[in-house]
Amino acid sequence: MKELIRPAVSLFVLLSVVTGIAYPLLTTALVAPIFRDEAAGSLVVRDGRPVGSSLIGQNFAAPKYFWGRPSATAPQPYNAAASGGSNLGPLNPALAAAVKARVDALKTADPGNPLAIPADLVTASASGLDPHISPAAAHYQAARVAAARHLPEQTLNALIDAHTQDRQWGLFGEPRVNVLELNLALDELR
């Protein structure tokens, strides 16, 4: 079996260079000119400085902004350097307790809201960085944001509709609203 060692080692090194160095470098070089923004992380720039990525959610807690999904990242929510979910099982009392606290917080922030609270607004996402909420979760918050900004609720509902993405190609995924993009558009309204 000794005669296997030279082919094993040299083939291993050679194919490692091809798949581990040449391939990622070639891919990077090829996509750089075609998909420059995407390859670099879909960064969003406002007033000349990056304020985030349109693919990575941010923590919003002020009443004047739409809030995103709860995030289970540690030590703070929406920590992009440590993605992950809560991993709470469906029967874990800690899950029900966390959801109850979120429901209470939403009700405290907007006591008169007659709408039902959508599930995505009170459950933690898988990545902890989910950039989207459901259209229902956005509309649920319209009254609160309207009050905080002294804007008519209709304006906000129209803005939400304008920022609602349908299923991709009408076939894949779920309808959704990108929270960072919605909030940026909100700041533009003043």
């Binding site: 999904r69 979910g85 809560s86 991993n87 709470l88 469906p90 899950l95 029900a96 959801v99 109850k100 429901v103 039902a116 609270i117 959508p118 599930a119 995505d120 009170v122 459950t123 933690a124 996402s125 898988a126 990545s127 989910d130 989207h132 909420i133 459901s134 229902a136 995924g173 779920e174 959704r176």
Partner: peptide, 16 residues
């Protein structure tokens, strides 16, 4: 707890 479960079990899932 009064949550609208139409979207299904969303804990640990991405909205998209």
């Amino acid at each position: 707890l009064g949550v609208d479960m139409n979207a299904g079990n969303m804990e640990g899932k991405e909205m998209r």
